[in-house]
Simulated scan of single mutants.
Amino acid sequence: MERTIFFITLLTAGCIPAESTCTDRRCLAEMLIKKDYLSQPQEENCTLPIFVPFIEYQTLGVRWTDPALAWDTSVYPYDEVILPVHKVWTPELHVTNGIITTMTHSSNNLLVFSNGTVLHSVIINAEVNCEVNLFNYPFAADECPVAIQTYSTGDCGTELVLGYLKMVDGSHGDWQTEFAALRKQRDDQF
Score class of each variant (00 low, 15 high):
Gly116Asp: 04
Thr96Asn: 13
Asp79Tyr: 08
Val95Thr: 14
Tyr57Ala: 15
Trp89Met: 07
Tyr57Gln: 15
Pro67Arg: 10
Ile99Glu: 11
Val85Arg: 12
Arg63Ile: 11
Gly61Arg: 09
Gly116Ala: 02
Ile99Phe: 08
Gln58Lys: 14
Ile99Met: 07
Leu83Gly: 00
Val118Trp: 05
Thr59Met: 11
Val118Tyr: 10
Val52Leu: 12
Ser114Trp: 02
His120Tyr: 14
Glu80Gln: 09
Val75Ala: 08
Glu56Pro: 00
Val122Ala: 01
Val81Leu: 04
Val85Tyr: 05
Asp79Arg: 09
Val62Cys: 07
Ser121Ala: 12
Gly116Glu: 03
Asp79Leu: 10
Ser121Gln: 10
Val81Lys: 02
Thr73Gly: 03
Thr65Asn: 13
Phe54Ser: 15
Arg63Gln: 15
Val81Trp: 01
Val122Gln: 08
His94Ser: 09
Thr59Lys: 13
Pro53Gly: 14
Thr96Phe: 12
Asp66Leu: 01
Thr90Ser: 11
Glu56Trp: 02
Leu83Pro: 00
Ile100Lys: 11
Met103Lys: 06
Thr96Ile: 13
Ile55His: 14
Asn97Thr: 07
Leu110Gly: 05
Val75Pro: 01
Leu93Arg: 02
Val81Gly: 06
Val95Ala: 13
Ser107Met: 04
Ile100Arg: 09
Gly61Val: 06
Leu69Asp: 01
Asp79Val: 04
Val95Cys: 13
Ile55Tyr: 12
Leu69Ala: 05
Gly116Pro: 02
Val118Asp: 08
Pro84Asp: 10
Gly61Cys: 04
Asn115Met: 03
Ser114Asp: 12
Thr104Asp: 15
Phe54Leu: 11
Val62Gln: 08
Asp72Pro: 03
His120Ser: 15
Val75His: 07
Thr104Ser: 15
Leu119Trp: 10
Ala68Val: 00
Ile100Pro: 00
Val122Pro: 03
His86Lys: 04
Ser106Pro: 00
Val85Pro: 00
Pro53Lys: 15
